[in-house]
Nucleic acid binder design. Structure first.
Length: 969
RNA sequence: GCCCAUGUGGCGGAAUUGGUAGACGCGCCAGACUCAAAAUCUGGUAUUCGCAAGGAUGUGAAGGUUCGAUUCCUUUCGUGGGCACCA
């Protein structure tokens, strides 16, 4: 009886489906566990072996927890709105819903082959009106809420109106526009329209105008993290800045809570650091400077008010309001030229620029403490959106300011004495201040507070906490997204009522942008006639709360029943890539906090533990095509030569002998012959070409397959093999390919499709091999060749139960102590490794176990059955098959994970390593409970130790019980 | 430029708390089976000196702490990823 994985896997996948083996109930006595994969976007390209890595890891953990007695929620669904489908629609005229559905079906078929334990009854799709009804509903909750800074939570806008009616906004300064201040009577005197304008500046989901990343080609606005190198991440189209009406989420109000929340979750330090940096909280001061000879004022934000006397110039953002007011007549031309230059550049370009650019405005600010005039410059390195859009430059303490000063020959004031060497800036806080008026002699870090106090006393500045994070742009001028449940009346936005939801996405004739950069919805007369919002929501709308919908996916009355979300609570384990570090993860954390504040759920962090999977890189293969200088025959397609790697390597070394060898060989088959002279002066060029890794076995090219590759482009090519011979049907030598680790991509011909591997080796082998490659968190290259080792392991396991000739070999004999030791050692290792997500070492522990049981010729059910149970998370199909073969009736999926018992692995002796001066020289088998005084004479009596002692007495003998012995001479 | 991660045999990797470096697998070599090949099985495989016994070297590099360092510290180099010149 052979291991027929194809039949076995098909059989159990069908049976598990029929028996609803993965159906999860919201009612259970068992403790709950929620394992979630990051929401996939169903792309048209299909899966390559890198994609399922995280799904396999989460599947293993979900199955493991089930064996450990948990009620495990492990759902899957689709983040189905998005740009590629819309782009495809624009190009091919196919409705995004249709192409998305096709992609989902392909995706699903690929997933099913790998044998995941998802509860598909809970599948969600963000583009389904039953789903986005609730995305719209949550949006309305955010629209109807503001952030109360006193209680530090979201509260209803109605309660804010009551506050305004009672006391104005004196205690609730306006987050959207700090200049809006009013008493209660003034509030009451406002028109309805203006009251709505004011309220808009408080809402958590609000509408405003802002500079956005405008992509003409896509006719849409992109979030910062969707723009890569000045072009759109999806599609690669140019992106410029444009002012547009946009919806936003007031995530900045949650900045502090998002920071604090990081302390309560189990994310990697790197991930926490990334989010912390993104939020970018800094403490500093705002200082207002008068502009000389004008009544203008310039406010800057600085984290180093202690350096106030080291300010040698100001830099304001080119977009700064003040620029046009303070630029002097002489500088006007210059400034306009510079502004024109800056305007032509995208934000990304401005950020990435190393070149120092800038322009003097002609104006001078006045240092409030010593009345020193300070020249005001503009430069693209200062951004309008951060702080006040202006900085005070201290060249002796800031490297960037220093370089700017050097570049434009601005004199530098040294306020840190010897700490500044004139060669580079020094950002120290430890220096004692000099040239600093009333701060002279004070250490910088102590001066900070002094200056702030002084600023506040003089009324020219104040302490200020600043965040780098900006409010999240929450609208797109495109079609394939959730419509906003918003109506416009005379320029005022009004929410639809709850019973009008879902507001369905209408059909359109064209997916191209509407007038003046509006979305495709603006092209629909009926839509516009109803005065509905023409923007749609961005991709992260649906993915910000999907983990809640999985809990209660069919609920028509609520987004998720409170009792149900109380039961499932947080996601216990969230697995996905680091690419969502600051986008999705921050937005979903904010939504969760808002929903919590409003009383809809009972916790304010969505993900308890986050595990970041690494990328699987491609391992590319190359063939080397020969062309030549002064070797004309090689340069036409009738004489195509490929050389094995050996010759490429040799030829790279430019040894004349190697060249001649190669020439002689080629000369012998070419129709026209070359003279000796030409051989001496001619040169080869060996060009590496990517070759499809699927026609290469390890490094060995399958030449016949290669000839058929790319429509038989190379059908007539000649191949110089590793031993220097030319390929023919009787060749014994091989064609060896070059290799390089690169990103996995179709264009590099290094993608490997999981379907092919599952067909060839089975899902169980594939799952185990993906894990065996290395730690989940780490990036590592794919190597198809290695999968055979894992496949051999499963076959070897099979042979413990069934022999090809003899049939059944497993038996009911009593296990020996040695066999039980192997079993329990394995139980401990598998359990520990799985708990700590070290799946690669768990796979090798299975291999060790099977190797040892095979050596012991152990075919005993008593030992094999627990091994099968442990194997369920990793290789469920073979485990179930053998479980049934042993005569069990229930499914192994519901078995109980075996219990480790230390008595079986207890040792009475230990093989101690004995080192001399830290170098291992010998080992000694000693009683496990031996003490130092007992050890010493035994060690000293040892032959090897005596040899190294050479008669001398040891200085010291170090004995660590259960670990080692070290003799110091 | 800044931040993060990472560096161990021919390759992927292991060594969980400072305690026998290289588990497990791939590849390679040899052998068994076979007319032969494939498949399978068995043994070997860090480098180096040596017939062997046994040495020496070895976790990117250089220092340091320690009886003992892949593990901790300092400096430095390479690779991968991220970024916002963030005041």
């Amino acid at each position: 009886m052979e291991y027929n994985f194809r039949e076995i896997e098909k059989k159990w996948q069908t049976q598990w489906k029929e028996s609803n083996a993965y159906k999860v109930s919201n009612i259970s006595d068992k403790p709950k566990y929620y394992v979630l994969d990051m929401f996939p976007y169903p792309s048209g390209a299909g899966l390559h072996v890198g994609h399922p890595l995280g799904y396999i890891a989460s599947d293993i953990f979900a199955r493991f927890k089930r064996l450990k007695g948990f009620n495990v929620l492990h759902p899957m669904g689709y983040d189905a709105f998005g740009l590629p489908a819309e782009q495809y629609a624009i190009e091919h005229g196919i409705h995004p819903a249709i192409s998305t559905e096709n992609n989902i079906n392909n995706f699903r078929a690929q997933l099913d082959k790998i044998g995941f334990c998802f509860d598909w009854d809970r599948e969600v799709k963000t583009c389904d009106p039953k789903y986005y009804k609730w995305t719209q509903w949550i949006f309305l909750q955010l629209f109807n809420s503001y952030f109360n800074r006193h209680t530090q939570k979201a509260e209803s806008i109605d309660s804010l109106i009551k506050i305004f009616e009672a006391e104005g906004n004196v205690n609730h300064p306006c987050p959207g526009d700090a200049t809006i201040e009013f008493e209660k009577d003034l509030w009451k005197s406002f028109t309805d329209e203006y009251q709505q304008v004011v309220l808009m500046h408080y809402r958590l989901a609000f509408c405003g105008y802002g500079e956005v990343n405008w992509c003409e080609a896509l006719g849409t606005v992109l979030a910062n993290d969707e723009v890569v190198n000045g072009v759109s991440e999806r599609g690669g189209h140019p992106v410029v800045k444009k002012k547009l009406r946009q919806w936003y989420l007031r995530i900045t109000e949650y900045a502090d809570r998002l920071l604090q929340g990081l302390q309560t979750v189990d994310f990697s330090d790197a991930m926490k650091e990334m989010q912390t940096n993104w939020i970018g909280k800094s403490t500093g001061a705002e200082i207002t400077f008068d502009i000389q000879n004008t009544n203008q004022k310039l406010t800057v934000y600085t984290t180093r008010p202690d350096t106030i006397f080291g300010v040698d110039f100001m830099v304001v953002a080119p977009e700064h309001e003040l620029v046009k007011h303070i630029t002097t007549a002489e500088q006007k031309n210059e400034v306009e030229k510079y502004l024109h230059y800056v305007n032509s550049r995208s934000e990304r370009e401005r950020m990435a620029e190393k070149k120092i650019t800038g322009c003097f405005t002609g104006a001078y600010a006045i240092n409030p403490f010593n009345a020193k005039p300070i020249p005001v410059w503009i430069s693209e390195y200062v951004l309008a959106g951060y702080g006040t859009g202006a900085i005070m430059a201290v060249p002796c303490g800031d490297e960037r300011d220093f370089k700017f000063a050097k570049h434009f020959n601005i004199p530098i004031t040294n306020i840190i004495g010897d700490y500044f060497n004139g060669e580079e800036a020094n950002a120290t806080k430890e220096a004692t201040l000099t040239n600093s008026d009333f701060l002279n002699g004070i250490v910088m870090k102590d001066a900070i507070e002094l200056v702030v106090n002084q600023l506040e006393t003089l009324g020219i500045g104040k302490k200020k906490i600043n965040y780098r994070m900006r409010d999240a742009a929450f609208s797109r001028q495109r079609y394939w997204g959730e419509p906003f449940p918003i109506k416009w009346k005379d320029g005022t936005a009004y929410p639809l009522s709850e019973n009008e939801l879902p507001l369905l996405l209408p059909e359109v004739d064209t997916y191209s942008p509407g007038p003046e950069g509006e979305g495709p919805l603006a092209n629909i007369p009926e839509w516009v006639a109803k005065e509905l919002e023409t923007n749609t929501m961005p991709g992260y709308a649906g993915s910000s709360w999907y983990f809640l919908r999985y809990m209660d996916p069919h609920n028509d009355a609520r987004f998720c029943d409170r009792k149900v979300s109380d039961y499932w609570n947080q996601v216990d384990l969230y697995i996905g890539g680091t690419e969502h570090a600051v986008g999705h993860l921050l937005y979903s954390r904010m939504w969760t906090k808002a929903l919590y504040d409003l009383g809809f759920i009972g916790y304010d962090e969505p993900f308890k533990k986050l595990l970041n999977q690494g990328m699987i890189q491609g391992s590319s293969r190359f063939v080397y095509r020969l062309t030549g200088v002064l070797v004309p025959d090689l340069n036409d397609n009738n004489n195509t030569f490929f050389s094995s790697k050996n010759h490429f390597d040799k030829y790279q070394n430019k040894v004349a002998e190697n060249k001649r060898e190669l020439f002689e060989l080629i000369n012998s088959v070419l129709p026209s012959k070359y003279s000796k002279e030409l051989i001496e002066i001619g040169e080869f060029i060996l060009t590496p070409l990517h070759v499809d890794v699927n026609i290469v076995d390890g490094y060995e090219l399958n030449i016949e397959e290669f000839k058929k590759w790319r429509n038989s482009e190379y059908a007539n090519a000649e191949f110089i093999l590793e031993d220097g011979s030319l390929y023919n049907s009787e060749s014994t030598s091989k064609y060896i390919c070059g290799a390089e680790v690169e990103k996995m991509s179709k264009s590099k011909f290094n993608t490997v499709n999981p379907d092919d591997l599952v067909a060839k080796y089975g899902a169980d082998t594939f799952r185990m091999y993906e894990m065996f490659l290395g730690p989940v968190e780490q990036s590592k290259p794919w190597d198809t060749k290695g999968i055979e080792g894992v496949h051999r392991f499963l076959k070897k396991l099979w042979r413990l139960f069934f022999d090809e000739l003899k049939g059944k070999v497993w038996n009911e004999e009593k296990a020996t102590t040695e066999e039980l030791k192997v079993l329990h050692k394995t139980i401990k290792k598998i359990e520990d490794d799985t708990e700590r997500f070290s799946f690669n070492t768990a796979v090798s522990a299975f291999m060790v176990c099977v190797n040892e049981l095979a050596d012991l010729k152990c075919n005993k059910r008593e030992v094999l059955e627990p091994v099968l149970i442990m194997l369920v998370p990793y290789a469920p199909h073979i485990a179930e098959e053998l479980w049934k073969a042993l005569g069990n009736t229930g499914s192994i999926l519901d078995a109980t994970f075996p219990t480790f018992e230390s008595k079986y692995v207890a040792e009475s002796t230990k093989e101690y390593p004995v080192s001399i001066n830290g170098k291992l020289r010998t080992t000694l088998s000693l009683d496990i409970n031996i003490s130092q005084p007992e050890v010493e004479p035994i060690v000293l009596a040892n032959e090897t130790v005596q040899k190294w002692l050479e008669g001398k007495a040891p200085k010291k003998i170090i004995f660590v019980k259960g670990k080692m012995i070290n003799v110091v001479i």
